[in-house]
């Protein structure tokens, strides 16, 4: 696995200004975890540049989005905990 610089935890919808701010500060060796309303970014087919994209399985399922996750890795809480420890820094948007 590549180095993981910053793990971005994103819980806002694509309409929220912070969604755009997050994309603006995304680096090539970063990863995103979409949680809560952030998973709606999958439905809106947002481009996440070259960042690796993860989405919290429970939040995806709750919103009926399990079918729109081709390029996304679904993670459970335990895998999310692991990701926060792999990254050099974590930012919650």
């Amino acid at each position: 696995m590549n180095e993981l610089h910053t793990l971005h935890i994103l819980n806002k919808t694509p309409d929220h200004p912070r969604f755009g701010e997050c994309l603006g500060m995304l680096g090539p060796d970063d990863a995103i975890v979409l949680i809560e309303n952030g998973v709606l970014g999958l439905a809106a087919a947002e481009g996440f540049h070259s960042a690796r994209v993860y989405a919290l399985r429970d939040d995806v399922a709750a919103r009926g989005l399990s079918g729109s996750t081709q390029a996304t890795s679904l993670v459970d809480y335990s895998e999310w905990v692991g990701l926060t420890l792999q990254a050099e820094r974590v930012i919650s948007w």
Binding site: I35, E36, Y77, V81, G82
Partner: peptide
Amino acid sequence: TQAPQTALSFAKAAIAAGH
């Protein structure tokens, strides 16, 4: 908001992983 509930699931998973 969903925050307290997401945080609780995270906390339980962290403890379950030995943290």
